[in-house]
Amino acid sequence: MQGTWYSQVRDPNGKPLVMTVTGGSLTVGYQGKSCPGTISANMAVSMTCQGETISGGTAVVSGDGQSLTINWPQGNPDRYVRP
């Protein structure tokens, strides 16, 4: 779970969102902006982006450890892959 992950979604400039996980903290960066958040030992995720806090997410890492999905109760899941 620790380390750098790249989203499968691209920003308007064609660059992926980058999520960095260090300990119980995570940061999602895109277009020069940063969205801080937390991830607990039981894989619960919350983050704040552009003044809005999103919580209730659950992270799931694939069996091979190369992909990560964050399932959100209020929208579509976020999918990331290892670089």
Rank of each mutant, 00 (worst) to 15 (best):
T22V: 15
S46Q: 13
G23Q: 02
Q31F: 13
G75P: 05
P12D: 13
V61P: 02
C49D: 06
T69H: 04
P83M: 06
D11A: 11
G24S: 14
Q8Y: 13
P83D: 10
T20D: 09
L26I: 01
S7N: 07
Q74F: 15
G29T: 14
P36I: 05
C35P: 01
K15G: 12
T69V: 14
R82F: 06
A59V: 02
Q31W: 08
R10I: 11
Q31Y: 13
M19Q: 06
G24L: 00
Y6W: 13
N13V: 11
S7V: 05
S34D: 10
S46T: 07
G51T: 08
W72T: 02
P36W: 00
L26D: 00
P83C: 07
V28L: 08
T48V: 10
S40Y: 10
G65Q: 08
G63Y: 05
T4F: 00
N76K: 14
L17W: 10
P77N: 08
G29H: 03
S7F: 06
G24W: 03
L68Y: 02
P36Q: 07
G14V: 09
G56R: 10
Q50V: 12
Q8N: 15
M1W: 12
A44N: 15
P12A: 12
R79K: 15
P16K: 03
S25F: 06
T69L: 05
C35Y: 02
A44Y: 13
N42F: 09
M47Q: 11
T20A: 11
W72E: 01
M19N: 03
G3A: 10
G37Q: 01
P77Y: 01
S67F: 04
G63K: 10
R10E: 15
G63T: 13
T38H: 05
D11V: 07
T27H: 06
S25A: 13
T53D: 08
T69C: 09
G75A: 07
R10N: 15
M1A: 14
D11T: 10
A59P: 03
V28R: 00
V18L: 07
S46R: 09
S34Y: 09
S46N: 14
G37E: 01
D11F: 04
D64W: 06
N76I: 13
G3R: 01
V9E: 15
V61T: 08
W72V: 04
N42P: 11
D78V: 01
V45T: 02
G57K: 01
T58R: 11
